[in-house]
């Protein structure tokens, strides 16, 4: 019960600071929208191909913009060494980790709603399977949040963390992107023979296994 209150307090603290400063949401959303515009110029010379490129562009945009946000996630914990006010408190390290991951997930999803709507409009995509479309993005974002939060926390004080974070996380994200693009392609009616259910289960499995492992690693990596 105490842990639940601590979890809620940390998430609430992050949301409150974010809505006060709007640092992460404002910058990542703008970055994502600009990416979409650039992708439109890069790939839309042949409008008939938009269904082929659309799913990939959704996921590349999500990945890039989320990484930018993740690099900022621990900035406010670094100032005044605040992360240690959490880690030295009686709160369990797993509570701290899950709360930060939740905040990260919330920022990522808030940023993605306008971005993805814009992609759908620009690339004239029609979502034929809304459940699969949303489920893939939701599950995929959980995966990004778990792994991204772990390494964003660990690299908080590293020189060159901006480059190191994607260097470390992208190889781990590859399966997520593969699965996400497949499901999204099916969900916008691309003519490929794929069973979205298999890939959604795959994403769910990824979330569960990486959820357990990242939670276990966080406490140990911080103490090492």
């Amino acid at each position: 019960m105490d842990e639940l209150r601590r979890y809620a307090a940390i998430v609430g603290k992050d949301l409150r600071v974010e809505f006060r400063t709007r640092e992460i949401l404002y910058t990542t959303t703008l970055f994502a929208l600009l990416l979409v515009v650039i992708f439109a110029f890069a790939f839309l010379s042949d409008p008939t191909k938009s269904r082929d490129y659309g799913p990939g562009i959704i996921w590349v945009t999500v990945l890039f913009a989320t990484t930018v946000g993740q690099n900022r996630l621990f900035d406010r914990e670094r100032e005044n060494d605040c992360l240690w006010s959490l880690l030295l408190s009686p709160a369990a390290p797993s509570t701290v980790f899950l709360a930060k991951a939740t905040a990260q997930l919330a920022f990522a999803l808030l940023m993605q709603v306008p971005t993805i709507l814009l992609i759908l409009v620009f690339f004239d995509l029609r979502v034929t399977d809304p459940f699969a479309f949303v489920a893939a993005l939701a599950l995929g974002n959980v995966a990004l949040a778990l792994v991204g939060t772990l390494f964003a926390a660990m690299l908080m004080n590293a020189r060159m963390k901006e480059v190191l974070l994607p260097l470390v996380t992208y190889p781990l994200f590859v399966p997520v992107v593969i699965a996400g693009v497949k499901v999204t392609a099916v969900a916008v009616g691309a003519p490929i023979a794929e069973d979205p259910e298999v890939w959604l289960k795959f994403l769910l499995g990824f979330d569960m296994i990486f959820g357990v492992v990242t939670v276990m690693l966080f406490g140990r990596m911080v103490r090492a």
């Binding site: 603290k13 406010r76 100032e79 005044n80 605040c82 006010s85």
Partner: peptide, 9 residues
């Protein structure tokens, strides 16, 4: 020295 207080709260 680093005060452990959140500047934006």
């Amino acid at each position: 020295h680093d005060l452990l207080v959140y500047p934006d709260l």
